Amino acid sequence: MSDKTIKRLHPALRDDIGDLLTQRPLPNPHLAQLDPFLFLNHHGPQVYAPNNHGLPFGPHPHRGFETVTFIVEGMLTHKDSAGHESIIREGGVQWMTAGRGIVHAEVSPAEFLQDGGPLELLQLWVNLPGSLKMTAPAYTGLQRGDIPAIGSADGRVTLNLVAGQWQGRSGPVNSLTGVFMSTIELQAGGSLRVPELRGRTLLLYVVRGAIEVGGDLASAFNLVEINDEGDSLEISSEAGALVLFGHAEALREPVVAHGPFVMNTREEIVEAINDYQAGKFGGTL
């Protein structure tokens, strides 16, 4: 058994959306995707003043993939055309399967607009294979308490299990494509080894602090591209860190993306646009 190593660090690129501080680690000039992981935005951290305008993500459509939103700090209201609505707070996660088409909004709840406060979010897009792109839309909203927090024996590491299996426990999201998804909190001196990763695509992003992998350091706001060689991954932190960690089987399919639609062909993109304009993505929010 051998450990995986870092291939390259990809610093997140600043790309603010209005007054929302935004940094984007994926895609970037050197990496179009980490199949099946397509896109990752890191919003914040920042503090909103009272009587603010909140998040700018009003109603917009999606087709062909899944969105996963991590509320690191603050709160978020989700509404969609399939009738789902929830307010998710700090430590929670939203997992939405756009499938054949959905319109959703991610905005700030009234109490945040009035009172303000800290805000930090991660939004990840996970591709679906062609065979599932037209699946029925679905949504799961999880509060912190819904997500198993699995601690290490020494208490220095906590893995928050969103999807997949870890130490005999299962995450609350049943991924359509067998994606493992988590956040990992490492205290000073914490270390975690993840086995049985050969052939899997790894997603590793440092949200806060710094980690060490294979003797190399990766600090906050860096996407860590991992070499294919090796069976396991060991992550450690000298001073503490928060990381987003997932892994999945690569789809190895053509990706044609146009704004909020991700399909396999240009013809399917045209069809998605026409279907949305024809009102086939569900009711208004």
Results as ranks from 00 to 15, higher is better:
247 H>S: 03
30 H>V: 07
26 L>R: 01
7 K>F: 09
114 Q>A: 15
58 G>Q: 12
77 T>Y: 06
54 G>R: 08
258 H>N: 14
231 D>Q: 12
87 I>N: 14
43 H>F: 15
142 L>T: 09
25 P>I: 05
225 E>W: 00
204 L>R: 01
241 A>E: 04
66 E>T: 01
155 G>C: 09
214 G>S: 09
200 R>W: 05
96 M>S: 01
194 V>L: 15
141 G>W: 05
277 Q>S: 05
263 M>K: 14
7 K>C: 08
185 E>V: 12
280 K>V: 03
153 A>N: 13
180 F>A: 09
169 R>T: 04
194 V>I: 15
242 L>N: 07
262 V>W: 07
19 D>V: 15
109 P>D: 02
56 P>T: 07
206 V>I: 00
160 N>Y: 15
254 P>D: 05
54 G>I: 13
27 P>I: 08
272 A>R: 09
61 P>C: 03
131 S>M: 03
270 V>G: 09
214 G>W: 02
122 L>G: 08
241 A>Q: 07
69 T>H: 08
150 I>A: 10
194 V>S: 12
41 N>D: 15
28 N>F: 09
16 D>K: 08
2 S>Q: 13
52 N>A: 07
221 F>H: 13
7 K>G: 14
245 F>T: 06
210 A>L: 00
168 G>A: 04
141 G>M: 04
191 S>F: 01
104 H>K: 05
95 W>D: 10
164 G>N: 10
218 A>R: 07
265 T>I: 11
260 P>K: 13
79 K>R: 15
233 L>P: 09
176 L>P: 11
184 I>F: 03
284 T>N: 15
199 G>T: 07
212 E>F: 03
25 P>A: 01
187 Q>S: 14
108 S>N: 12
169 R>H: 02
59 P>F: 01
64 G>W: 13
209 G>W: 10
126 V>I: 15
256 V>F: 14
55 L>Q: 08
107 V>H: 00
121 L>Q: 06
164 G>C: 11
223 L>S: 04
10 H>A: 13
101 G>W: 10
217 L>Q: 11
240 G>K: 07
146 D>C: 05
153 A>Y: 07
115 D>G: 05
21 L>G: 11
195 P>Q: 06
277 Q>I: 02
177 T>P: 02
120 E>F: 00
169 R>E: 11
218 A>M: 10
37 F>M: 12
159 L>M: 08
196 E>A: 14
105 A>P: 00
281 F>L: 01
